[in-house]
Design a protein around this nucleic acid. Structure first.
Length: 170
DNA sequence: GGACGTTTCTATG
DNA sequence: CATAGAAACGTCC
């Protein structure tokens, strides 16, 4: 009987000084990344299956990228991202977010204009919230127009911390 | 229909 | 200038 591990995503911990992130992989690439429950928390991943070689290769890249992001540095090359579960609108937003360099920020309205939907600012906020790969798809670099932070699904403390490390916090 | 990780425009003082 | 109300967008409950 052949092993068929590809149907469900593979989950692997990413150990950092800030705690353990959880990376999630499909056959197409990195499909999700979740923050530690609290700053410094370790993962509760009991099952440590041996992942496919390809995924292990991706995970090395993910780990490096997460550490760079936490340090506020530009991201190294990423593994392929599997964003297929997002709508066309969401994917266009997420793609745009990746073009915001470390140390730069944009408002929800600017992102909306950049994807050709100037009036969809609020929908951009919703799309950011639905981002499956925060941190590496830098939704934390999207702020409210008038100096406000906006929101952050994983907690505003994270958003503040990341922006501070990138030198973007006024 | 209502609510959201918003923005922008229109009144009114 | 400050404040208030309303409209607009995409997604989920």
């Amino acid at each position: 009987m052949k092993i068929k591990p590809a149907s469900l995503p593979t989950r692997l911990p990413v150990a950092t000084t800030a705690g353990d992130f959880i990376a999630e992989y499909t056959g197409q690439g990195l499909s999700g990344l979740s923050f530690p429950r609290r700053t410094g928390a370790k993962s509760d991943l009991a099952e440590t299956k041996v992942p496919l070689p390809e995924i292990r290769r991706w995970h090395v890249l993910t780990t490096k990228a997460v550490k760079a992001a936490l340090a506020g540095k530009p991201l190294p090359p990423l593994p392929p991202l599997d964003l297929a579960r997002g709508s066309a609108f969401q994917q266009s937003v997420w793609r745009k977010l990746q073009q915001i360099a470390a140390g730069r920020t944009q408002s929800y309205g600017e992102v909306a204009a950049a994807i050709g939907r100037p009036k969809a600012t609020r929908a951009v906020g919703t799309a950011c919230g639905a981002n499956p790969i925060p941190l590496l798809v830098p939704c934390h670099r999207v702020l409210a127009a008038r100096g406000g932070l906006g929101g952050f699904t994983a907690g505003l403390d994270w958003k503040r911390l990341l922006l501070e490390r990138e030198g973007s916090l006024p």
